[in-house]
Simulated assay, not measured.
Amino acid sequence: MPELKVADRQWTVAAGGNLLDALNHGGVPVPYSCRAGSCHACLVQCVKGDVRDSRPDALSPAQRDNGWRLACQCQVVEDVQIHTFDPQRDGQAAAVDAVDWLGADVLRLRISPQRPLRYQAGQHLVLWAGDVARPYSLASLPEEDRFLEFHLDCREPGQFVDAARQLSTGDPIRLGELRGGALHYDADWHDRPLWLLAAGTGLAPLFGILREALRQQHQGTIRLIHLAHDEAGHYLDKPLKALAAKHPNLNVELLTAAEAPAALAQLRLASRQTQALVCGHPDRVEAFAKRLYLAGLPRNQLLADVFLTREDSGRR
């Protein structure tokens, strides 16, 4: 049976066992969120030996050459020595710029990195508060905001949101890996209708993408639909309405869970050239996608990103 070594600890694990489970069960806490190879919170480094990797395409060639692996996607098949991601050693230094509430359930976290971070609207970043990590989508825009902005859904308890509630301006925080998800704005869409459909804090990356489209003077119509549990859940209603008042080609629709089925059933495409971006909980994304396909949207004109919880990943 293979031996797993981390720092000065070494123990035997089952051959073919999941690396993330072996580490956590062995008392080496490695954070994770999605268990699907998307969030990159479980990044570890193989310094001796290797593992069987089911998602080699999830990391860049340079990362793989340096031994980095996503623990959730790997099986232990031989003796291997692991360095876990150390936010103090491997992460980037940053400080909390501001913490405030956008309504009762959404905590807005603004962070100033010690060194400028090059990113694009729609990307997400792993945040480390002490030894607790979680990926969050960026709601900020590099050309307009001096800070990195994140919207944290605090309706349910969690290690990171519990830690984030205790943060104050000036507190240190570490930044992990920056990732590009499916969502982005493409200048080639300049004259096409653009639909942005978000559920809950899935609005965060689409808010950045919306502002990027407007910054690039998007000429096609833009339709943004935000689905929330109730009226109070439309946590960006004021800035969205302000943007709609300023840009005649932007239409903002705020739907509650009770209103959504009837409203989504009425979706109709004005043009087969429509480009749609969807983000939120997997169930909501699936519902959005189904209605868009029924409305005639070509499948290659839909980009989707899902916000997975640990419970979601366990069911899938």
Rank of each mutant, 00 (worst) to 15 (best):
209 I>Q: 12
112 S>M: 12
179 R>V: 11
195 W>K: 00
143 E>A: 15
107 L>T: 00
154 C>D: 02
178 L>Q: 04
102 L>A: 15
185 Y>R: 08
154 C>P: 00
108 R>F: 05
148 L>T: 01
141 L>H: 15
196 L>V: 03
158 G>Y: 07
121 A>V: 09
153 D>G: 00
161 V>G: 04
113 P>M: 09
113 P>K: 11
123 Q>D: 07
191 D>L: 11
191 D>Y: 11
126 V>R: 11
141 L>N: 13
119 Y>I: 00
166 Q>A: 15
130 G>P: 13
175 L>N: 04
214 L>R: 13
215 R>F: 10
198 A>P: 07
213 A>Y: 09
179 R>N: 13
98 A>N: 15
127 L>E: 09
112 S>E: 13
205 P>D: 08
186 D>R: 14
162 D>F: 03
144 E>K: 13
157 P>D: 00
114 Q>T: 03
116 P>I: 09
141 L>Q: 14
204 A>W: 02
146 R>W: 03
148 L>V: 02
136 Y>K: 02
147 F>K: 07
121 A>L: 05
147 F>G: 00
188 D>T: 14
171 D>C: 03
152 L>R: 03
156 E>P: 02
140 S>P: 06
123 Q>T: 12
100 D>H: 15
206 L>H: 08
178 L>V: 01
204 A>E: 09
130 G>S: 07
106 V>G: 12
158 G>V: 06
216 Q>R: 14
174 R>G: 04
177 E>S: 09
119 Y>A: 02
155 R>V: 05
148 L>M: 12
103 G>V: 09
122 G>N: 10
117 L>D: 01
190 H>P: 00
188 D>Q: 10
125 L>Q: 14
172 P>D: 06
170 G>N: 05
199 A>D: 12
152 L>F: 07
179 R>Q: 08
186 D>L: 04
170 G>Q: 00
122 G>C: 04
104 A>Y: 04
192 R>H: 14
114 Q>E: 14
111 I>K: 07
126 V>A: 15
163 A>T: 11
148 L>G: 03
154 C>S: 11
108 R>V: 08
168 S>I: 00
174 R>Q: 15
126 V>W: 11
189 W>R: 10
